[in-house]
């Protein structure tokens, strides 16, 4: 945790790298930045084929990558494929990894994002099963069902957003990446990122207004 605090940057997010931290593995950078990457030791051990490091990689990164892909793609099976492929690529790249200004976690996000882009470009059979667009007017469900309905509504609203707005919200809000890192990953300016976030949130607020009640 101390390391996270020390590595605060201009994005306002602990431990996040500088603006140009999305290059691939193998690049070199400032040693001080490399020391601040909390994953550097794990990646080094991974490159040596340490089985414990493989476990650390999977347990530490799989949930984040799966969440990223799941919220961007809206499909659990595809998200699993993306997360799996990203981790395998990370393992393959680990022996040639050179600590630099880019953090391993950011690079991993870039890999997963590209895999998601590939899938989003393909013709997709969109299924809205489990994602009700309208409010159920039947008998009052119990709290568990209400929570499920709430989650399904939010997911449906998120999936209905234009892809770039959804991506901005997923990266900044759900993945908790800093604004600079998110902008770099999306290859947009900070101003453009802020605009995408604002428009996306405005649309979500409109789509989910019945869940949150009237605004004051």
């Amino acid at each position: 945790m101390t390391m996270m605090v020390l590595s605060r940057n201009s994005e306002g997010v602990p431990g996040r790298g500088p603006a140009n931290d999305i290059a691939g593995p193998g690049w070199t950078g400032k040693p001080s930045q490399a020391l601040l990457d909390p994953d550097s030791d794990m990646v080094t051990r991974l490159g040596r084929g340490d089985p414990a490091a493989v476990q650390t990689l999977i347990s530490g990164k799989l949930p984040r990558l799966l969440a990223l892909a799941r919220r961007l793609l809206g499909d659990a099976a595809e998200a699993e494929d993306v997360a799996q492929e990203a981790l395998v690529r990370a393992w393959k790249q680990a022996p040639s990894w050179t600590p630099g200004p880019a953090r391993f976690d950011t690079w991993l996000h870039k890999v997963a994002l590209n895999l998601c882009y590939d899938r989003l470009r393909r013709p997709r059979l969109v299924s809205d099963a489990g994602l009700p667009e309208t409010v159920d007017r039947g008998p009052a469900p119990d709290a568990g069902l209400l929570a499920q309905d709430r989650q399904a509504r939010v997911e449906a609203a998120l999936q209905a957003l234009p892809p770039r707005q959804r991506e901005a919200i997923v990266l900044c809000y759900y993945q908790d990446l800093g604004n600079q890192t998110a902008a770099d990953l999306m290859k947009v300016s900070l101003e453009a990122l802020e605009s995408l976030l604002s428009r996306g949130r405005r649309t979500l607020r409109g789509a989910l207004i019945d869940l949150s009640g009237p605004l004051p």
Partner: peptide
Amino acid sequence: ARLDDLLDAFGLEAPSNDLRQRIYARVR
């Protein structure tokens, strides 16, 4: 923050053991 609360409702389950094992099998 009201929209934040709604966004937080979109939680996800932890990755399944099956998925973990599949990845481990490809890498291990």
